[in-house]
Design a protein around this nucleic acid. Structure first.
Lengths: 390, 390
DNA sequence: AAACTTTGTCTATCGGATAAACTAAGTCTT
DNA sequence: AAGACTTAGTTTATCCGATAGACAAAGTTT
């Protein structure tokens, strides 16, 4: 059954508009909010009153007069509650306790021993425990948990398939909700990374964003009109398996020429193939060190990876026309040597109109994109946004 | 300024829900509508009254009793007005007069002589003229015009760039609105095709749809959550320039290995390259005739085109996870010989989960996808849909 | 024919948004 | 310093649409 209109909906919508306006542009006076939103002053006053009672908004004192009575400034109260953002990696669990503005209050991480769901869940519980103990006293307490996982997640939070963990059909959301007693949001790692960069990082205020997460694989999180796009069944963003060589290298997915074989850490394994000198190391950290000392083979490798990244990004750009592309993930440790070739390739190959306006940049949050994005999804669910389009 | 909530919005939303419910599921009684939508019976009665006054809904008489008073059945009145859908091709203008349900009342087409905007506009006017004369007398008369063009169109209807016409920055919408005095919707050819197939063709009731239009080039129309996705500046869907061979054939766009060089009619020009026998013809109609009589070179060609179409479609599927892919456009005249290789390739290369649920099919509306889609966009704008997401 | 069912309307009420009047609290002018 | 002016925020009366529930209308079943 669809959403129908009634007074409750109107109120919910307007309240969400007022809160959002204050959150993004505060401090603001009631009159400012009224002018910005188009809502009547009385309406703003009423809704603000409720937000004050809910402790989501604070009066921070008088502002500057502009020739009349001084305004009482309103500010979003990020300290009204806490959330926990978790990144469940293949070998590592990272978690952060944040306030409602994404400010980190505490952080933990732990290696992931076994990979069966039970063992992983135990590690998650252990990692989160000290964060809960460190939680300050707030009006709302813990309001939610967000978690990013390396796999495909449907709209209900069910992990459909996580090849690198060997999981299939794991209802992580229910399990965590039972454990912690708060609402849980589960999403793909690239998606939460996209959410993080869009809210707190390189993609602020961007309507259409593609976040490319490059590590052992390659995945994309796509934000369309400010919202994560998950596709029909939650498999959107598997761009690592976009073929950029129709008859290229055979991939474990069964296809050929997949992007991630050329433009992620998986490319390291193929270097000797070209007959060139073998690589002096096999991890990005080590290779970055060699690059820093001028190792020609490594520099070539990263130039080629940059070029291939550029080719794939160009494909995404031509299909999606995002406002911005943000590249993140472990591979960005080598961004210094990847970036020039990547940008050159995009400049060469993207359609002229895209080139003119497109912005491509690297992650601003670094290794925290995912935890912060996961945290943000939880905040976002707690604050509950209503959207209307005519 | 954003949309805020007030009573007018609530009414607009509910009225749009009622109309939509009747339109898609009619005939229905008022009680049926109330049950389906969750709206109160009184609300439905009130809104229906207005819709009856606006002639958008008709009472078609009494229905079957289910043990009590007979219901008065309501039906969407497609004859309340007319729209015109236009496909502005590179060499041909096609136009259709339809009612509000997409029923074709009259059709015209005319070759496009010169390609400068003024000449094209004159041809459009001449093509539309007899349709206007054939227009039946309806309560609302002509309520809008939709037009699909081979180029990139931004959200305001401005044609940013149409390489095949040599147009740049043409405000077709304003021009046509001045001429005809009704609201005009302009969009990309692939987008209107997508709209057509989704409303009246192979993509009915599909939430996320990708329509691939294959002709002299290759373009996609993407429908996300029931709405056309245009990207940040209207360039989304330029998938013809997705590279499927990183260092492949040089394309006129400046890039290499573009999909449309391998999987559209542009591929015909490259056959001799492989050293094989030259093609016996150069248009799809002629080649289809040769295929029908078993010409091996032509059959090979179409097998290869099918394979390449499959590769590109797999890429789109992995990125977007649409519910359905519909292939249309002039090239589908040869679908008989393209389809097997295309489907095999997708089955081989798509990720296992996609494969399981994805539906790929050819256009149901054939050469009318675009005109009907354009007409539908005009209808849709006239009826005005409001959407709320929580 | 009486009881029951279903359809659709009528009526009173509720709860939001709004404009306009009003109070509060400042600045500016002379 | 006093009055005029400005701006901020609240109060009041009004409007409007959705809703529940009563009711009327028009069937069917026994």
């Amino acid at each position: 059954m669809r959403v129908t209109g009634d007074l409750a909906l109107v109120k919910k919508l307007n309240k969400s508009i007022v809160l959002d306006t204050i959150r993004r542009n505060g401090p603001l006076s009631r009159t400012d909010v009224s002018e910005r939103t188009g809502l009547n002053k009385a309406t703003v006053s009423n809704l603000t009153l409720e937000l004050l009672e809910q402790k989501l908004v604070e009066e921070t004192g008088l502002g500057e007069s502009s020739g009349g009575r001084k305004p009482l400034m309103l500010l979003f109260n990020g300290a009204a509650g806490c959330v926990i953002g978790i990144e469940l990696g293949v070998t590592l669990v990272k978690a952060a306790l944040t306030d409602l503005t994404g400010g980190i209050l505490a952080e933990r991480s732990a290696p992931l021993a076994g990979q069966d769901p039970e063992a992983a869940l135990a590690v998650v519980r252990e990692t989160v425990k000290p964060l809960l103990e460190a939680m300050p006293d707030t009006p709302h307490g813990l309001v939610g948990i967000g978690i990013g996982v390396p796999g495909m997640v449907d709209e209900s939070g069910l992990i459909l398939y996580a090849p690198n963990l060997g999981w299939e059909g794991v209802d992580l959301r229910s399990r965590l909700e039972e454990t912690f007693g708060v609402p849980v949001v589960v999403d793909n790692e690239a998606n939460v990374g996209a959410a993080g960069e869009r809210e707190y990082g390189a993609g602020r205020h961007v309507r259409h964003l593609v976040y490319v997460s490059a590590g052992m694989g390659l995945g994309s999180g796509m934000i369309i009109d400010g919202q994560l796009y998950k596709g029909a069944w939650g498999y959107a963003g598997e761009t690592g398996h976009m073929s950029i060589e129709s008859d290229g290298r055979l991939c474990s997915c069964g296809s050929r020429g997949c992007w991630e074989l050329y433009a992620s850490e998986r490319a390291y394994a193929y270097v000797s193939e070209a007959g060139s000198t073998p690589l002096p190391a096999s991890t990005t950290s080590e290779l970055a060190a060699h690059a820093r000392s001028g190792d020609a083979a490594v520099l070539d490798l990263y130039r080629e990876i940059g070029r291939r990244l550029g080719i794939g990004i160009t494909n995404l750009v031509n299909g999606f026309n995002p406002e911005k592309i943000v590249v993140g993930g472990p591979l960005t440790e080598a961004k210094e040597w990847i970036e020039p070739a990547m940008l050159d390739t995009i400049a060469e190959r993207a359609l002229p109109y895209h080139r003119r306006e497109l912005a491509v940049s690297f992650s601003e949050l670094g290794s925290r994109s995912a935890v912060l994005g996961a945290a943000h999804l939880a905040v976002s669910q707690f604050l509950g946004r209503v959207r209307v389009s005519l």
